Computed example of a mutant assay.
Amino acid sequence: MDSTFVKYVLTALALSATPAAALEQNCRFIQAKADREACYKRQEEELAAKRKPAARAAESKTLESVRQMRQDDDAVYRSINNICRGC
Rank of each mutant, 00 (worst) to 15 (best):
D72P: 05
A14Q: 06
E59P: 15
E45T: 04
S79V: 05
Q68L: 00
V66M: 09
E37D: 10
T62H: 11
K7I: 14
E45P: 00
A20L: 04
C87A: 14
K41W: 07
C39G: 03
L23S: 03
C39Q: 02
A34E: 14
C84E: 12
T4A: 15
A14E: 06
Y40T: 10
E64D: 06
V6G: 10
V9W: 06
L13H: 03
C27F: 00
A32T: 09
S3K: 08
T4W: 06
A75N: 04
L13M: 09
C84G: 10
S3I: 05
C27L: 00
K52G: 09
L10D: 07
I83L: 15
A20S: 05
T4P: 03
D72I: 09
L23I: 02
V9Q: 02
G86F: 07
K7T: 15
Q43F: 06
K52V: 04
A48T: 12
K41Q: 15
A12Y: 00
A14P: 01
P53R: 00
A75E: 02
R56H: 12
Q71A: 04
A21C: 08
G86R: 10
Q68F: 01
E45N: 02
I80K: 10
A22W: 08
R85G: 09
I83M: 14
Y40Q: 14
D72M: 13
Q71Y: 05
E24L: 04
R70N: 12
A34F: 01
D72L: 10
E46F: 06
T4Y: 11
V66R: 12
L23E: 09
A32P: 04
R78C: 05
T11M: 08
K7S: 15
A55G: 04
E64G: 01
C27E: 02
K50L: 05
Q25H: 02
A22D: 08
A38P: 00
L15R: 09
A75R: 06
F5E: 10
E46I: 11
E44Q: 13
K7H: 15
A58I: 12
L23Y: 08
L23H: 09
E37W: 04
A34K: 08
F5S: 04
S16H: 10
M1K: 13
R42A: 14
P53I: 00
I83E: 14
K61Q: 13
S16K: 11
R28Y: 09
L13Q: 05
R78K: 15
R51V: 07
V9L: 09
I80V: 09
R36G: 02
T11F: 04
M69P: 00
R56A: 13
Y77R: 10
P53E: 01
E45R: 07
R51L: 12
R56I: 15
K50T: 02
D74H: 06
D2F: 00
S79D: 14
A14D: 03
L13P: 03
Q71C: 00
F5P: 01
S3W: 06
R28Q: 12
T62F: 11
F29V: 13
C27Q: 02
D72S: 11
G86W: 05
L23P: 02
A12T: 05
I80G: 04
E24V: 09
V76S: 06
K50I: 06
A57R: 05
R51E: 13
M1W: 10
S65D: 14
R85D: 10
T11S: 10
E24P: 01
